[in-house]
Design a protein around this nucleic acid. Structure first.
Ligand SMILES: [Mn+2]
Ligand SMILES: [Mn+2]
Ligand SMILES: [Zn+2]
Ligand SMILES: [Zn+2]
Lengths: 143, 143
DNA sequence: TTATACTTGCAACTCAGTTGATTTTCGATT
DNA sequence: AATCGAAAATCAACTGAGTTGCAAGTATAA
């Protein structure tokens, strides 16, 4: 996924130095087949280099503010992160109620329900998050 | 909202005693015009009686497991709760990115996109959560 | 009344995430 | 090459929503 992104160039465009930790965060998110928790990202970086958790949290927060990364609040207390590059448009997510694993679903057209979701007159809707909950195929096989 | 619910009877149907704290949780959620955080519920109960936070958290967890209450993961670390009685069918929510306030939106028909959201073959989708983010009318007026 | 299960309270804990201060690194300037 | 200032990383300590285990209280059943 998104192997086509030039992360060094992307950071330069944002006015950020292409430090090893920043590049590691982007590469790990770019290779991930699903949204990752901060702790998973931390452990994956630590497989290649020594790093403090605060650094990773601050980078993820900064990337989120800049819109380079999407922060997903799928369940309380633990956030998931995914790349928000041009190759990863927003899309719905599936979370299994048994194993808590998260899947990325294909983008859906929301044109028809978008206007219904604007809410009371005067609100400005910027984007829609869709989360589907259920039981994944792996957990269904077990039971 | 849902003044028509007989909470004592509902608890009896669930095989639960109609204790003062349980009734207070249901009454507060029934009167709330929006989803509430656990801490807000706690403070509203404390306006009428002494209560320990653990009791409220345990009641909310129990109600959620039984499907009497919906737990919303709108943003990391803080859950919101709302009544899931017959008068409150599931519906989308709006959260303002400025003041973080949550609004309940009208239910929308999802028939059309439901099948698209089933995901990879084999998953069983049970329900869909829709969260709209943006800026509420109050915060728009200010800026 | 006594036994039992249910409910609440208390204190201590967990853990993802945050804060502030300090040190290190890097790129520019001399 | 040495110096300097800003950006980046580190460290320890903290925050706070939610949890756990156990003791104490309360209602129901026998
Ligand atoms: Mn995704
Ligand atoms: Mn609602
Ligand atoms: Zn699963
Ligand atoms: Zn607002």
């Amino acid at each position: 996924m998104s192997d086509r992104c030039n992360f060094s160039r992307w950071l330069a465009l944002e006015g950020l130095r292409a430090t090893p930790v920043r590049l590691a965060v982007l590469e790990i998110l770019g290779e991930a087949p699903r949204a990752l928790r901060a702790q998973e990202i931390l452990e994956l970086i630590r497989a290649r280099r020594r790093v403090n958790k605060v650094t990773v949290y601050r980078i993820l927060e900064d990337f989120t503010r800049r819109g380079m990364v999407r922060k997903l609040s799928l369940e309380g207390r633990v956030n998931h992160f995914e790349l928000a590059c041009e190759h990863h448009p927003p899309h719905p997510h599936f979370q299994c109620q048994t194993c808590r694993e998260v899947q990325c679903l294909e983008p859906v057209a929301l044109n028809r329900i978008w206007t219904e979701l604007q809410g009371p007159v005067g609100n400005r809707a910027d984007h829609i998050d869709i989360k589907v909950e259920g039981v994944c195929h792996k957990c269904r096989d077990i039971s």
